[in-house]
Design a protein around this nucleic acid. Sequence first.
DNA 1: TGTTGACACGAACATGCGTTCTCTCCTATG
DNA 2: CATAGGAGAGAACGCATGTTCGTGTCAACA
Lengths: 212, 212
Amino acid sequence: MKTVSRRQQAILQFIERFLDENDYPPTIRDIQSELGISSTSVVDYNLKALEARGLIRRNSKISRGIELMNRGSTRRNVVTIPVIGQIAAGQPIPVPGDLEGSDVTETVELGSDLVRNSGQGLFALRVKGHSMVDALINDGDVVILKQQETCENGETVAVWLKDQRETTLKRFYLEGDQVRLQPANVTMDPIFTPAENVEVQGRLVTVVRSDL
Amino acid sequence: MKTVSRRQQAILQFIERFLDENDYPPTIRDIQSELGISSTSVVDYNLKALEARGLIRRNSKISRGIELMNRGSTRRNVVTIPVIGQIAAGQPIPVPGDLEGSDVTETVELGSDLVRNSGQGLFALRVKGHSMVDALINDGDVVILKQQETCENGETVAVWLKDQRETTLKRFYLEGDQVRLQPANVTMDPIFTPAENVEVQGRLVTVVRSDL
DNA sequence: TGTTGACACGAACATGCGTTCTCTCCTATG
DNA sequence: CATAGGAGAGAACGCATGTTCGTGTCAACA
């Protein structure tokens, strides 16, 4: 009763694989024929053992009522965010509304603890160019933004600087009628600009860099 | 036949909700009783309509053989990576083996397209301090590493510099018996050090910064 | 050597659950 | 008014699938 037998482990793996391929759990007989087990009762026996160990949950009487305790629940709080375009220094930021009809080809999945609130109003952009190294953001990174036209002091936001015709990511501080834009890189100096020159496009929620 | 009727939409939503709660799809009769439909044939009828529209797939004869075409397949490939410790300039990097028994409290979930290979051998560390800004990595970022003691030229790796007693993240180039460590930040200069002074701890796979 | 308990067989058995067939009840169309 | 087709009701049918039961094997053990 202590150890998970080889056969039980194989069953567990098969269930996992099956779930990946089919969206619904396997039947006892699926498991049986896959693993070359002679009887359904043997599968039932081992399934009971796995359940006693807390590795799976079984809903009696219900067809395909096998649930994996591990992933299962964790996999839920995953948010899928569409990558709707690029962000570069010299271009305005695409916002979700712009591409209404066009279906997005690329998406990013993140655990909801990385984005809090279930991903509502979030969108992602791929960074083009090295213009945002002062925000510790590299060419090719994916930035995830929450669409909003205003922001609190201290939040990192994507802003469009009208005069410079330039997009940038900085911490935002309204000081009188001036705005101080503070780079995330502590070694770099802030820039100051009149409040009416900045147009907040969204708040920076997450940055993902994938060095594959 | 053009429009998705109110009832069909309700069915679709219910299937989705059911899947969230149970890990296995509902039966026709589940749908029936939930929506207060009088007959299973009505459900079957509407399900066929939804399938014709390509919104679901049904595996005939198979119990609970309903699959949602939208999410379903995409949301599965999510990898859960344990955050096993911190990484700071002056400390050796914890490696997975170190904390065998201790159960990890924090994890990070990422879509598998961000980490390729199904997350085998991956672990995550939270960055402490500003020592890695030259790698465009900030205090509080989470770096995801693949454990390996060797690496190819051009890969970004976490190395332990014996003489300096220091951990750093750089691109690695072996040049003769020297190693060139190139910061990701294009504006910064590489450092050179003897090959025997560097100890590769892992390859950088992904960086995640969460500005909540 | 006999007993016990984990593990495995096969074959019924009893439901779970998808499918199908026959009838209504509409609303639109002519 | 007659007809046709979409949407639904109700019941029966039958394969799909979980459950149970009687046996058999093999190692550990007293």
